[in-house]
Simulated assay, not measured.
Amino acid sequence: MIHASQDILTRGLWRARRVVLGLALTLGLALLHSGPAGAASLQVSPISLEFSPAEQAQSVWLSNSGTATVRAQVRVQQWSQPDGVEQLSATRELVASPPVVEIPPGGKQMVRIIRLQPAPPAQEQAFRLIIDELPEVVAPAGAATSPGLQFLLRYSVPVFVALTEPVPANNKPSDISALSASLRTSGSQLVLSVSNAGPRRVKISQLVHVDAEGRRTPLAPGLLGYVLAGQRMQWPLNLPAGQVLPANGTLKAKFNADLEEQTLPLASNRS
């Protein structure tokens, strides 16, 4: 079995193309195995969930845009970032019902995500909803049986249980005062480390380096990732061969759903 990656965070079909190219991405997998060649037909909506403190359940819809029945397994895992590394672990805080679904062509299936401990949390909780497309047990009648590759998707949907009621969307930029970052060299690669001392996760995207003359070097053109509440995350930054970032530059990025970028507070500790 070959493993490649997919994460559906705001990336849609672009992410699916990256799966076909076999690029590794955080916390999402697509599985390939011998079987009839075919395009992925399993779709998931919404692409993220946030529970209010006392909310007990939310719904996710799985749909099948293909011409054959799709089977999928749904489960929830705790999400943490010990030592700056993404980690998933078993949990009984949230469960999916039903855990296995079968969706006919053109059909939809609702899955309930249920909190077993509905009391308000002591801090924001983070989970990942893992949705695995399962291989066909029996090929449809009349289907070609020639060998090939079938892409089986794994969707990884972020799920949060908030400390307070969700704040209505406004035009104000995200408060990133709880973030602190450092940039260091590890061999020939730059590593960005970001700590979040705040009560809510922060999503970082479109990271660029801006030098003293205003020249911009893209470091993460799309989604870089999340820093969970009270935790630290780190990412390797890939530069073009032979390129070195000036030490007197700044890092800018977009945070959460902001339209405008902000400067990421960066300690000058590169070595």
Rank of each mutant, 00 (worst) to 15 (best):
S5T: 13
S5W: 07
Q6A: 11
D7W: 12
I8Y: 00
I8G: 00
L9Y: 14
L9D: 08
L9S: 12
T10Q: 07
T10A: 11
R11I: 10
R11E: 13
G12D: 10
G12P: 03
W14V: 13
A16F: 10
R17M: 12
R17Q: 11
R17Y: 08
R18C: 05
V19P: 00
V19M: 09
V20G: 11
V20F: 06
L21R: 11
G22D: 01
G22V: 01
G22L: 02
G22N: 02
L23A: 09
A24H: 06
L27V: 15
G28H: 01
A30N: 08
A30I: 10
L32H: 02
H33T: 14
S34P: 04
S34V: 14
G35Y: 12
G35F: 07
G35V: 08
G35P: 02
P36F: 02
P36H: 03
G38F: 08
G38Q: 13
G38P: 04
A39R: 05
A39K: 00
A40K: 00
L42F: 05
Q43F: 08
Q43G: 09
Q43R: 13
S45F: 11
S45G: 05
P46G: 02
P46H: 05
I47A: 04
I47V: 14
I47C: 01
L49W: 00
F51Y: 11
F51T: 11
S52H: 00
S52R: 05
E55Y: 03
Q56H: 08
Q56F: 01
A57N: 05
S59N: 07
V60N: 02
W61L: 12
W61R: 15
W61V: 15
L62S: 10
S63T: 15
N64D: 02
N64I: 03
S65G: 09
S65D: 08
S65H: 10
G66M: 05
T67A: 14
T67F: 04
A68Q: 10
A68T: 14
A68V: 14
T69D: 01
V70N: 00
V70L: 11
A72I: 11
V74R: 01
V74D: 09
Q78H: 12
W79P: 03
Q81Y: 08
P82Q: 09
P82C: 07
P82D: 05
D83M: 10
G84T: 12
